[in-house]
Nucleic acid binder design. Sequence first.
DNA 1: TTAAATTCCTGTAAGC
DNA 2: TGCTTACAGGAATTTA
Length: 274
Amino acid sequence: MPELPEVETIVADLRPHLTGRTIVRCELLFPTIVRHPEPEDFIDSVAGMRIAGMRRRGKFILVDLENDLVLVVHLGMTGQLRLVDADAPLATHTHAIFTLDTGRHLRYRDPRRFGRLLLGTEESLLASKKMPRLGPEPIDPGFAAEELYRRLRNRRTSLKAVLLDQGAIAGVGNIYADESLHRARLRPDRLAGSLSRKSVQRLHESLRVSLLMAIKNRGSSVDTYRDAWGEIGGQQEKLLVYGRAGEPCFTCGRPLAMIRIAGRSTVFCRRCQK
DNA sequence: TTAAATTCCTGTAAGC
DNA sequence: TGCTTACAGGAATTTA
């Protein structure tokens, strides 16, 4: 599923192809995928808009348009945003088609429909809570270990639950939470507030390493993830624990354990992670 | 206020 | 082989 590295890959790939282009028209094949504004208004507002740029914030894709308007795309679990020729066969579960002035299509498809599209100014979307307030970007050079420590210190829940909390840290999902905790040698069910500064420093570094390596390898295609060209990523081959329950730990050889935390399957090594 | 549980949704895979 | 059932999970919503 798309987390920070997967979304970053898509945004970086699409940015040079979309910046400066104009959205000629928009077609919604499944209108309820648009959560704001009303689908008719969404179509009318987006048509004729020039794309000024593209950004990522957490797991959100932000397409900057004119007049401070932002087209927001969240991929949920199975969302895909692809740039294709207009005559490319229509994939099943394609919910939105943006026709560009180049004649090409930017298509959104999402079999499980956990994703969504939004349109508005960033300010109004945040104020109306259509878009949540997100925590800091973990790969931002300005994100210090001390900041992570402050955000973990007063939490009375598991470490894993806090890493998944987008309001605490933006962009980390189930894959990279488990990967980072393993790399930091920390148990996922440990109380977040119980960590020493030293342990938090290890987690801070592990988050950065896990996420940056995944970006370098163009993300993990463990479920249905595909990049903007429909290609799979490479990080799934390099995952240390995610999806490897019962298989031997690469460090100690003991079978990896699986438990449920915050409703998510969580894989870790009982020997290496304390 | 915070945390945990529930809900949405469909493709996939395991089990009978 | 073909059917049923469990499972995957991001995040909004509801409950505790």
